[in-house]
Design a binder for these strands. Structure first.
Lengths: 249, 249
DNA sequence: GGGGTACAGCATATGTTGTACAGAGTGCGT
DNA sequence: ACGCACTCTGTACAACATATGCTGTACCCC
């Protein structure tokens, strides 16, 4: 089976498929310890705090020693994201819709708990053991719905994308951001003010109306759970429609 | 009206609200020309090609001269994204659903046409003139549906998020990526191979089944329009359900 | 119409960061 | 016991964003 060749190096490492060597001193570390250290730094100092040097000094080695285990910083970041993904919620015989609600919410929540993931995720499809476990559970929830495999994967991807979108939006609106950097806006209230300052009724009639009917301002708390369940219900209603179609057909 | 003070500098510049000065030599540039040059570079060389130095040399000035106009590279990137957004499709009296289909597709398509936008977007809520025009048109399409302002904004945001999710996914699957860098996977076919190599039936029963029923492999062309309309219909069916509820109530 | 001033454009310098490279030590296999 | 593959490390370098201070210019005001 020389087919492991097709695995990109990050993927191999995420799955613990590192080549073991018999010669030389035993390695004093493994990739997992490095990744864990990097995650701790990202959690406390944010993503910019994750430097090869800072990670190295946290695990107690020289900077360059990391490259024996991770290949590049990009690789490290990718591995961090997967390692930071928790176990998906247990599907305890719940109806598909109930499970997918908690699944999607939990999905959004771990992004919110570790905002730095938002900046790294997206770049590549899920290939790590923990991300894929989430996919597996969503497929399981949809097992008895009559949808075919492709459709189920599609639904799961859409829900995952929604969780990520929502997390990014909510995080962007929360006041204590460190991500967007300097030039951003702190919170929905301020966002609303900026829009009000800038939007004119000729160019943006509907938006102007929405702003002045306080569609934004009303809901500084809007950024809570309400709009999340709103959009989620949109999606799940759609899924329900699809299932109904498949069942009658 | 000293309230323009609340505008973050990027926003002010995106809306052309630069302070005009009477003294000194006339500026030989404006922010727009710089942004346009940066976009041209991003289009041809990708985002990593956008350096302050490369942008400067393209507009024919010294590197540091740019800072008279943009404040920081972050600011430049933010402004680039908005400037690269095209005009939204015309709503020519179309039914809301038809319009939103073309709106969402066009939204996804301009992300695909300029993949570098995917790496910069999301960080901040839309605040530029062109992004907000899209929002305005979506609100207009939903004007007669009986949804209130908050709900309409919510629907539009969800659709926008979906367009971005889909664009990112499709782009991540396309073969000629330059974004994800080295460690990625080139195309759905290869993705499918990697999964097959790595997924075991005990830990991932449903995913294993899906892979071996060729839910991924079948559809190397899957990355076309089909899965896009699939998820979009999910969403719009949900919106339709909501509208029906509001109408009867 | 002349001087003062605010501002445009620029060259140079600096700090940060990822990573290449080469050497020194180490423990397994023969 | 010897050699080799491999680990760890220090140093060096390259790329890049940006701070600083200089030079010249054109408007404003007297």
């Amino acid at each position: 089976m020389a087919e492991e060749r097709v695995l990109p190096p990050v993927v191999a490492r995420m799955w613990g498929r590192e080549a073991v060597s018999r010669h030389g001193p035993r390695p004093s570390l493994d990739a997992a310890r490095i990744i864990a250290a990097a995650i701790e730094i990202a959690d406390t100092e944010g993503l910019p705090g994750v430097r090869m040097s800072s990670v190295a000094s946290r695990v107690g080695v020289a900077t360059m020693s990391l490259y024996r285990y991770v290949g590049s910083k990009e690789e490290l970041l990718t591995a961090m994201v997967d390692a930071a993904v928790p176990e998906p919620p247990e599907l305890g015989g719940l109806p598909w819709r109930d499970y997918l609600v908690t699944w999607t919410r939990a999905n959004r929540d771990f992004f919110l708990a570790r905002p730095w993931m938002l900046l790294v995720a997206r770049l590549t499809p899920p290939m790590g053991p923990r991300s894929l476990r989430w996919l597996d559970r969503a497929l399981a929830a949809l097992a008895d719905t009559g949808l075919d495999a492709g459709e189920r994967v599609n639904v799961a991807s859409t829900l995952g994308g929604y969780a990520l979108s929502e997390a990014t939006f909510v995080h962007g609106m929360s006041s204590e951001r460190e991500v967007g950097g300097d030039a951003g806006v702190a919170g929905m209230a301020e966002y609303s003010e900026v829009l009000a300052e800038v939007i004119d009724p000729e160019g943006y009639p509907e938006l102007f109306a929405a702003i002045h009917s306080n569609a934004f301002g009303d809901a500084a708390e809007w950024v809570g759970d309400d709009d999340f369940t709103f959009g989620l219900d949109l999606l799940l209603d759609g899924v329900e429609t699809l299932i109904a179609r498949r069942t009658t057909a």
